[in-house]
């Protein structure tokens, strides 16, 4: 029985020796303050299995300052309540270190829903007294843009970015929007629109995903669907940064 347990551990966590035997390693941190962080972990592992089965993925939860390590390749800031996450980061002195980590050119960051709010430089409809953000992307994000839970919805969005289209192999993605934000304005030409939501009753398509440098954000929750396109896109971006 004892040996079985040890075997399992070895299988799950290869020693550094095994890693130096040529297996590439993806080390991803998921901000585990509050929200759907486990869902992201599951989706990421499934996406990785189809992407690079020859490599190895290690996913850690970021709850403390000391978890923000330079050797992480990518970080996901999951959905949850942006106020809850932002207050926690502020109280635990994590805003500046996380911001510095994200701004490093060798690091890839993805924010979903609350993560989109935290990554944006400008936020509308904040809680009374405002809320601090990581202030990375030149976007203006409106919290709860679509309304309250009664207006939460599922709908197909259009993918615009070429790399993303290649990853997805289709033009649409089924988005789940929970009290979701939206990007109402991009403030810099550096911001690339990745996906939009079309509505007949609204003149302009609504921006629901955007990218600036190695940082991107989505207003919807790919971790709540069985489609791993966005997790694959995240891993491919890391691969690209690693290779360059």
């Amino acid at each position: 029985m004892q040996t079985n347990i040890t075997d399992n551990i070895n299988e799950a966590m290869p020693s550094s020796e095994q890693l130096s035997n040529g297996k590439q390693r993806f080390k991803i941190g998921i901000l585990a303050v509050q929200g759907a962080f486990l869902e992201h972990q599951v989706a990421l592992k499934k996406a990785h299995a189809s992407f690079r089965p020859d490599s190895y993925i290690e996913v850690i939860e970021i709850r403390h300052l000391c978890d923000i390590k330079p050797d992480l390749d990518g970080v996901i800031i999951p959905g949850g309540e942006s106020t809850t996450i932002s207050l926690f980061l502020q109280r635990n002195g994590m805003i500046e270190p996380l911001r510095d980590w994200i701004l490093s050119k060798t690091h890839v960051t993805w924010g979903t829903c609350a993560g989109m709010i935290l990554l944006s430089k400008i936020t509308e409809n904040m809680k009374m007294g405002g809320q601090s953000t990581l202030s990375i992307m030149d976007t203006d994000v409106s919290r709860n843009f679509f309304g309250r839970q009664m207006q939460s919805f599922e709908a197909d969005i259009s993918l615009l970015d070429e790399e993303l289209l290649a990853t997805a192999g289709k033009k649409n993605f089924h988005g789940v929007f929970i009290r979701a934000p939206a990007i109402i304005k991009t403030e810099s030409p550096e911001v690339k629109v990745l996906a939009t939501l079309h509505r007949d009753d609204v003149e302009n398509d609504i921006i629901v995903a955007a990218k600036q440098g190695n940082v991107f954000s989505t207003a919807f929750h790919p971790e709540l669907t069985d489609d791993y396109t966005w997790h694959l896109y995240f891993l491919q971006l890391i691969q690209k940064v690693k290779n360059s």
């Binding site: 929200g35 959905g79 949850g80 919805f153 929007f177």
Partner: peptide, 19 residues
């Protein structure tokens, strides 16, 4: 758009996790 689907309803609960 589809509102009030079980995915959307359970999704709100998922967003409250760890809270």
């Amino acid at each position: 758009c589809q509102t009030g689907t079980f995915k959307v309803k359970a999704g709100l609960a998922q967003m409250a996790k760890g809270g």
